[in-house]
Computed example of a mutant assay.
Amino acid sequence: MFQIDLVEKCKKNDRKAQMQLYKQYCDAMFCVSMRYLKNVDDAQDVTQEAFIRAFQKIDQFKAEVTFGAWLKKIVVNKCIDFLKRKHQYYLALDENILNVVDENDWKVDDQVSIEEVKSAIENLPEKYKYVVMLYLIEGYDHAEISEILDITQTASRTQLLRGKNQLRELLKDKRYGTRS
């Protein structure tokens, strides 16, 4: 059965179709939750809440993007909401000091592994970490990031630039010690 057919059945409250979509996407959405929450129980809870929300709001799905992309946005928003409830708020940045962001400059030494990059991202301050994760790992643009995190696009760009610079420093320190 095609995905769009499943979605249409879900819109008619077909429980079997809902279960099929759940089975198709639950592992991937759990992985997304784990990237943000780092706790299996919290990630399971948030993933479950995201599916419930998705099925409640499935009439809003217009197939402009894939169902998976639409669901992933719900999962990311649920993760961010969960973190906010745990008092992990984002610090506002002074937007008067702006730099142009070269968003495509993500070059890293070939000897640095993906795991080292992910580990370095985890060590970023939270105000940078989530913007970097949403941009680099999840592939969201600044308009989407600003909506998800409830910040301006300017703040998203600034936080990405600063996060990228700190990420480079963390990777440089990890690879070469504390050279300057």
Rank of each mutant, 00 (worst) to 15 (best):
E103T: 14
R85W: 02
Q88P: 06
D41Y: 08
G139W: 08
Q166G: 01
W70M: 07
Y128L: 12
E122S: 14
E49R: 14
A155F: 05
W106D: 11
T154K: 11
L171S: 09
L124H: 06
S180R: 13
D5E: 15
I52P: 01
D81S: 12
K38N: 11
L21E: 07
K57Q: 15
I58G: 02
A43I: 00
D42V: 08
E49W: 03
K127C: 13
A63P: 01
D41A: 10
V75S: 13
V40M: 07
Y140Q: 01
E122T: 12
L160P: 09
G139Q: 03
W106Y: 05
M34I: 00
I80M: 05
C10W: 10
L160S: 06
R35P: 01
D5V: 13
F67C: 03
A92F: 13
I114F: 14
E138I: 01
Q159R: 14
V76H: 08
V40F: 03
E122L: 14
V65C: 09
D42P: 03
D150H: 13
F30I: 11
K11L: 13
S119M: 09
Y128D: 07
I80P: 04
S180M: 06
W70S: 08
Q60E: 13
L134Y: 00
Q44M: 06
E103D: 11
G68R: 12
Y89G: 05
D141C: 07
N99V: 15
K129W: 03
S156A: 15
R35N: 07
Y135V: 11
D105N: 11
I121W: 03
V65T: 12
E147D: 09
V132A: 02
C26L: 00
K174C: 11
D42M: 10
D173S: 15
I151V: 14
E95S: 04
K129I: 07
L124F: 04
V100W: 06
R175Y: 00
F2N: 09
D105F: 00
N104S: 04
C79S: 10
S180T: 10
Y90G: 15
V101E: 02
I4S: 09
W70P: 01
Y89Q: 09
Q153F: 04
K174P: 05
I97N: 02
Y22H: 08
L37P: 10
M1H: 06
L21V: 05
A92Q: 12
V65E: 04
K62A: 07
K118Q: 15
L71Q: 05
L170P: 01
V76W: 05
D110L: 13
N123M: 06
W70C: 05
N13G: 04
C31N: 02
L93A: 10
R168H: 12
Q153Y: 03
D94A: 00
I97P: 00
V131I: 12
L160W: 02
I52R: 07
Y90Q: 14
L136H: 04
K86Q: 15
D150V: 13
R35G: 03
I121C: 00
Y140I: 01
R179Y: 07
A92R: 14
T152H: 10
F55E: 01
K129R: 15
D5P: 08
V117C: 14
F51Y: 02
I58P: 07
R179C: 06
I58R: 05
R53P: 02
S146E: 14
L83H: 03
G163M: 11
F82R: 14
C79D: 11
M133I: 00
K11F: 12
